[in-house]
């Protein structure tokens, strides 16, 4: 079943499907979530060997991966100039001659993801492109600034033109099993986002267990998250296949029970074109083709695009490529 998505703001879930309104916290459901680590790791270890995408299919899949990238810069030395360069890359992520050779046009990344202070520059640079600006928020990455300031930060970013807000949850609520607190916090963040769509960063590398990842995923979706996202990119362990499998299975459960589709964003550590293919096949296998669209799937990545560009040139020319042949971001 394929839902064709071609509205101007195709990357935003609320533009296509009804937005997840959330639901009452269902603790029975949350506590019944299980995650058997060994079995999950086995599934992830064999998946790359079970699905192989080659030749034209590989090129098409890599293009699709590009459209799902939240092209990201989250560094202390970001400047407006740096962000403008990144936005230019987001608008034209692949060399025009390569796109011509592939017979494809109009490829952009899914969004540009920056800190709050960079939002205006990004919004200005992307004006008229339909590419949304995502702002990390709520005291990113640790989420330990005063709560009222975290909520206020969301409002500031939305006011500055961010259409997507990547919030970080309070890991301590998960680690202490205080699901109600996590739910309430997420509820408030969601409310503060207004029309902007909200991605809940679980910081899975700091949650201790896959079971916690499953439970935190459910709580955030119940509290109205539009997307759930693995990591800030700042934890020592970021997106992994096992964590992804747990989160997307939670998304599947939520969809089966409520009918609302939640998006998924693995972030951090995905830098190879081949990895992006594995992630896409994981989404396709576990959730279905509908989740291969940028409104429901994003990569949080900064260097992935470069590797994909090289692979695409290799596909077109048959010769292995070099990084300097592709425009910097």
């Amino acid at each position: 079943m394929q839902t064709k998505v071609d509205s101007p703001a195709a990357q935003l879930p609320q533009m296509v499907d009804a937005r997840n309104p959330g639901m009452e916290l269902d603790l029975d459901w949350v506590m019944s979530a299980q995650a058997n680590t060994s079995a999950i790791e086995r599934r992830c270890a064999t998946l790359p060997g079970r699905r192989s995408v080659k030749k034209d299919h590989q090129a098409a899949w890599l293009l699709r991966a590009i459209t799902c990238i939240d092209l990201t810069t989250l560094a202390g030395d970001d400047t407006e100039g740096r962000v403008r360069r990144l936005c230019a890359k987001a608008k034209q992520p692949v060399r025009a001659d390569l796109l011509d050779a592939l017979g494809v046009e109009g490829i952009t990344t899914g969004a540009v993801c920056v800190y709050h202070e960079m939002v205006p520059a990004a919004v200005q640079a992307l004006e008229g492109t339909g590419i949304p600006v995502a702002a990390v928020s709520t005291g990113f990455p640790a989420g330990l600034s005063p709560f009222h300031l975290r909520v206020a930060e969301i409002g500031e970013s939305v006011a500055a033109g961010a259409e997507e807000i990547d919030i970080v949850i309070s890991r301590r609520h998960v680690l202490s099993g205080n699901w109600q607190a996590l739910y309430d916090e997420m509820r408030e963040f969601r409310a503060a986002c207004g029309e902007a769509h909200v991605k809940a960063i679980l910081a899975t590398g700091e949650l201790g267990t896959l079971r916690n990842v499953a439970r935190a995923s459910l709580v955030c979706m119940m509290a109205g998250a539009d997307f759930i996202k693995t990591s800030t990119g700042k934890e020592s362990v970021n997106a992994t296949l096992p964590v992804s499998l747990v989160m997307i299975r939670a998304i599947r459960d939520y969809y089966e029970r409520t009918g609302f589709r939640i998006g998924y964003k693995p972030a951090g550590g995905i830098s190879k074109a081949k990895d992006s293919l594995v992630y896409l096949s994981l989404m396709k296998e576990e959730l279905g083709d509908r989740w291969l669209q940028p409104d429901l799937f994003r990569f949080g990545a900064s260097s992935l695009l470069g590797d994909i560009e090289r692979q695409l040139e290799h596909h077109v020319t048959g010769a292995y490529s070099a990084g300097w042949r592709h425009a910097a971001g």
Partner: peptide, 16 residues
């Protein structure tokens, strides 16, 4: 199928 079509369908294709 062209790359553009595959981009829409997201089929696996064959990998013999």
């Amino acid at each position: 199928m062209t790359v553009k079509e595959i981009f829409e369908t997201m089929d696996y294709g064959t990998a013999p």
